[in-house]
Each structure stands twice: as structure tokens, then as C-alpha cells.
Nucleic acid binder design. Sequence first.
DNA 1: GTCTATAGTGCGATAGAC
DNA 2: GTCTATCGCACTATAGAC
Lengths: 196, 196
Amino acid sequence: MASPDAAAVPERGSVGPSPAQARVITAALDLFARHGVGATSLGMIATELGVTKAAVYRQYKSRDEIVLAAAETELARLEAVVAAAELEPSREQARDRLLEGMVDLCVGGRRRVSTILSDPVVDGFFVEHDQFRDVMRRLRRIMVGEGAGPEGRVTSAMVIAATSGAVTHPFVQGLDDEVLRAQLLSLARRFLGLPT
Amino acid sequence: MASPDAAAVPERGSVGPSPAQARVITAALDLFARHGVGATSLGMIATELGVTKAAVYRQYKSRDEIVLAAAETELARLEAVVAAAELEPSREQARDRLLEGMVDLCVGGRRRVSTILSDPVVDGFFVEHDQFRDVMRRLRRIMVGEGAGPEGRVTSAMVIAATSGAVTHPFVQGLDDEVLRAQLLSLARRFLGLPT
DNA sequence: GTCTATAGTGCGATAGAC
DNA sequence: GTCTATCGCACTATAGAC
């Protein structure tokens, strides 16, 4: 265990990206959202950061590692939302908190979330990714409960897809962020049969 | 105008892909769904078809044209669904028909629809694409009516995203197609406030 | 409509100096 | 941690024979 004082200095080490890695991830996620995952090269990331490719390779051994780390960063954001929801005293409050967090994530990230979530390569990473499965299981538990069958599975999949996918649709282009947020939240609640 | 008999031979010409082009599009859409749009090269399409790259270039002048033509093919499928719905006598029946067609498209296409729909490059094509805008406008009109404000815009965007995005989610992996189809339809109807 | 061959470019990745 | 320089390869696209 670390000494009490060590908690002040953000303790990472084996887990979590270094500041330099975080800058790579941020640039990567931005480019993914603009060009798609598969169309974003390591050189583009380097240019975005104002450095050369070799400097990027100092942070990650391969392009695939960058894609994985970027996806895991987005997953960590979702995990934080789920974890916060789990701290709520009641199921109802947990569900409310979860929906708010998800909507904020998607509206704030605009294209970021949906691009990551719908990329086939990222999906390949996630299919056997323990943390991803865990977060998704916990998310579904809050959203539709423990013993939900096919209906619960499809319902939760639709809410996730609807929230992340709707924010990129032309229909909502030009809509104020606050309006979009409120509508997404209200409609997601209605979808789950909750009082509005 | 063509002679009456010419109607037997499928008349295309200025519009719609030739049979050879259609094979390219089919291969492209399949590869897009497996690897993503940006990660699919012209060489991969050629290999999938069992020909060389030069043969593919005979059908389309550039890779971008293939992406565009593939996206337009998917759009045409949606347009057919919208057009069929518009022929229904009542608004209620039109909406039912639309939802059924959309669900069938997404379940049948699995990853195809969501990958195309969420790719940033494709989205760039579609933003100023007249037919795309027209189809979307007609779709929304059927789904939420003519004078729907922000709520209608967000609602329709969410239904589209939910339907196309949910079918690729791990939650529904292993679910029977018929069960998935029925659940998607029933839940989309509930989302729109329709009787189930 | 298919092929081979080729041009030119950009890619992922590494070596080694500073 | 950044650079320059480089390797080998795959990519888009074209030319020209069959």
C-alpha cells in the first residue's frame, strides 16, 4: 500500500494512461469522430499533436494499442457513470442518475461515442473484454433489472444505441445542447416506461 | 422512350448500378460491416470478388465512388420502405408499415446498416445529399407527423438510431432473429406511444 | 471485362542521434 | 521525449495488352 500522502499525487502506475498518453488518446478520439476509426492513421494523430510519428510510437507500441486505449478511455467514462449510479440509495434514483450520465456523455461527446461504439474493430476488442462486459452487465442491471429476459436485453441495447446514435443524426443538427439533453433524457425515460 | 417490350429487360441506364456494379457494392457493404468503412480497401473488395483491382476500377473511378454508391444502395432500401408506407391508406397503417420495414432492414442487415449510418465520411456524403434529406424528411413525417418540433426531431432520430444500433449490441447476441424482430418492433411502438 | 505492370504516395514500424 | 532517416509494404490510381 502507498503512504497516506501519496494519495495527493495521482497514483497510476500499472493502470491508466500517463499524461503524454492521454494527449495521444484525446487527439485520437477527436480524429476518430471526424474521420472514423479505420480512416485515422498514426501520422494524422502525430500531426494533430504537432509531433512526428516516432514520438507517438514512444507512447504506444502499435496503432492497435492506441485504438484499444482510446476505446478503454471511453469505457472508463461510462464506468464512472455506472459506478456513480450504483451509489444511489434506491433503484429509481440509480436509474435516473444513470440516464443523466449517459445523456451527458453522448451530448458532450457528440460523434465520439457513437463512432467508437459502432466500429466493427472496436467491437471485436470489446467482445472478449472483461471490463466492458462487466460495465455493460452492471448498466443493464440498473436500467432494466436483474432477471430481465430478451425484452430487457433489447430494451437496454436500444436505449444505449438511441442515446449515442441520435446525437449525430441530421434531425438534431442545430438543436441547442440543453434542448437536446432534455429531450433525450425525457424520451429515454418514456421509453423505459418511467414517469416524465 | 423505350418500346413496350423493353420493360421486360430491366431498364436502367442513367440510374441504378449495373449488375457488375451491384456485385462490387454487395462485396463492399459486406466488408464495411466486418471491418468498417475506412478500414476497407479497394484491394480487399477485389479479393472478395476474386478479381484484381483494375477490374474494380472499371466499374467505379475511385474508392470514394464505391463508398458513395454503397451508401446510396442502403438509402435506396430505406426509400423503398418509406415509399411502401406512404401507400398505406391511414397514418396509423403507414407508421406500422414503416416500423416493420425499418426493423426488417436492420435485423436482416445486421451490422450493415449501423456501420454505414454511423461512419463520419458517409455522413459527410449524406449531409448535402438531396435524396437522403428527402427520404429522411418523408420518414419523419410518417413517424411523428408534419409539424413536430424538437421533440419530434429527437424522437425520430432516436428510433432510427435505436433500431439500427441495437442489433449489433452484445446484449442481443445469440438472440433468435424472430425474437429480436418482434422485440424491436414492440419496443419501438411503445417508444412512439403506440398501442402494443 | 479482365489481366499485368507500374507510378506515386502514404502507411506502420524501427534505428539511432540529441 | 523528440527528432531524422529509413525499411518494406499496401494503398489509390492509371496504362495498355488480351
